[in-house]
Design a protein around this nucleic acid. Structure first.
Lengths: 117, 117
DNA sequence: CTCCTGTATCGATGAGTATCGATGCATAGT
DNA sequence: ACTATGCATCGATACTCATCGATACAGGAG
């Protein structure tokens, strides 16, 4: 190897700036991270999360969400449960209706892992 | 509604700063986004991606990756294929070995969708 | 209390997927 | 040409999950 082939930066510096690509994550981190990503990795849940976040007042009741899909109410409730268990939304019952609200913190944590420096 | 209850900001401004939560995405966007997230939503693939990105020189051959898991070589090859099809890594054959390299662009695009302003 | 409406849970079913062993393919070495 | 090695593909299997209808549960109305 000639002098011109010697790297000026270490491998971790030259490759990428994303923390995920800069440092190998361990199995436990991978397991936790994959749980959140699995909750997001579905087109119905992505639309639900986006609809809830962009809805007037920052919240939406299940009845409004069900109207937006060609899916049964139990199916929508199932997806909302998965989003809630992943920490992406919260629910609050007010009278007959249950309102869902987006929690942006988890998405921001993902940003921290994926972002370039 | 009294004057004090009138929102000072529109719903899209008050709720959140993430583009995903600020504007409802359509079905096609959700479908495309979910494909990338499905590729990431697995602990083995997350570790593979991280190992590749953090590896010396920014690339790793399959043989080095297989050693890190209690999984068969075909299984690792399968996961690498899914990561490649999602645009997260690329492969290059050099002699007997196939080297994989991380492509940070897709992760950065996710950051743009999830990030706070 | 009884009925009605909105939502969650349950059980079943079909689709998708993670995994493996066997095998095929490409390249290097002899 | 033959063999050995690294990797990809194939076919099978077990498991996860998306979806539904049926049903249970909670709260409001009468």
């Amino acid at each position: 190897m000639s002098i011109t082939e010697l790297p000026l930066l270490t491998s971790t510096e030259m490759v990428c700036c994303s923390p995920l690509l800069r440092e190998p994550i361990d199995e436990e981190q991978a397991e936790r991270l994959s749980r959140v990503l699995r909750a997001l990795a579905d087109p119905v849940r992505l639309r639900l999360l986006s609809l809830i976040g962009a809805h007037t007042g920052g919240e939406a009741c299940v009845c409004e969400l069900v109207e937006r899909f060609d899916l049964s109410q139990p199916t929508i409730s199932h997806h909302l449960k998965l989003l809630r268990e992943a920490g992406l939304i919260t629910s609050e019952r007010r009278g007959t209706w249950v309102y869902y609200r987006a929690l942006p913190e988890v998405l921001e944590q993902l940003t921290g892992l994926f972002r370039a420096a």
